[in-house]
Amino acid sequence: MTATRSDGTGARRAGAAATEFDLTAHWRERARGREGWENAPALVRDLSTRFTATVAEAIERAGGVPGRTETEFVAATWYGTSHVAEVMHEQLREAGPKWLDPEQFLHYSPHAMVSAAALDLGLGGASATLVGPDAEFQAVAHAVRRIRSGRAATVVVAEYEALTPFAAAPCPDGPGTAAGAPPEGRATALVLTAGGGRGPSLTVHRSGEGEGDGADAPAGRAGTTVRTAGPGLLRLLADAAEPLVVVSRAAGLRDALVLG
């Protein structure tokens, strides 16, 4: 169990992948109300398949992971799989519990995406799903901590979103969507590994630390792009080819992630 532990020297982005996908067909079925219920589980299958494929692609781009049973997994999402609860609520109101689909309820928890991907890809390490406006920042920070402390050698950090038309309405700190457009789905995965492999380093700087103090980190890095964390943070980290600083937007905190 300790063979794949890191030496606590820090994390690197070893691989990344991202995808976006059209959910219009699913929302069309939702709009049909009761007539579309039989196709409701197709959305969770679609989302799960695409999320798993994105994680698999990130692992492949990382050149594989050394010990899948030890590989940890932390995911972030804003709305999770709450579309399942939306459909269930409609079904309960209109027709009663006999219409509920047991398969769909398996995806009631936002962690279901992680469970399905871990099952399919044989990832057996500790896992967690973080939910909310700061979840992506927190998920990356947690993964970096696990690697920095030497408790994990490889951590997959992933995010997914499948906002429903209901959830895509204006909401403070929500991911939002283009005005008038049906919400799209998206998934992103990073493979973070310990130590001196290829790929840019990824560190967390806390408020009050010495060199590179939290939000002050950019000050010592002239020319570095500085962004504020928000929905899509993982995509930013996945795509970044140059050094990047992302400052937490959480109230009262000025922590920062530094890539590169």
Binding site: W78, Y79, P110, H111, V114, T129, V131, D134, G252
Partner: peptide, 29 residues
């Protein structure tokens, strides 16, 4: 919908009500 309807905002709302100033995280596992 507004913020209170979504569980992702639960920790932030609770932290504000409790006067906590650190990070606020929701785990849905």
């Amino acid at each position: 919908p507004s913020g209170p309807a979504f569980v992702g905002n639960l920790a932030r709302r609770a932290a504000a009500a409790l006067g906590l100033g650190g990070s606020a995280t929701v785990i849905g596992s």
